[in-house]
Amino acid sequence: MTNQQLEEVVKRLGVEAVISEAQFLTVEVPFDKLFDLARNLKENEQTQMDYLILITGVDYVSSFGCTYLLTSTTHNHYMVLKTRNIDKANPRVDSVTSLWQTAEYHEREIYDLMGITFNNHPDMRRMFLDESWVGHPLRKDYVDESNIIERKY
């Protein structure tokens, strides 16, 4: 399916989304609409996004964001699903583990390093760091005086 057709499908689903075209078709949605759109994309006959390649958690300083790269093994088309206005004080997004099981580990990794909590996640624990670790290292404002040395150019 071409990007135009994909765009039409997303529009037909009636989600308020900002659609742009970069390397892949990028659909930006509010974080509370994300799960519905993801489920529709997966279950829709025309899109069949059955393979979640990656989830990236991003710290946009003012808010958090998540980027999902989806693809379909039958149609071989790609789509980037983005959400970026996640509240910094209480970052919570719906988990997509029930749609793609691979998300379980990716979301745990994001929870660990970025500090975004995923609702309805079956096992929300830290992935790499110890449970007693304070802070989330991938955040831009993370300070670790003993381990991060400021580089001077």
Binding site: I53, L54, L69, E109
Partner: peptide
Amino acid sequence: GELVVHIISDGNKTPYRVKFRSPCLSTLS
């Protein structure tokens, strides 16, 4: 397996965020 590099750039000489989708993490699951 499939390694995906995801670079988010803000136009600087260093990336804003880099994500490596490592094949082994998914295989481990």
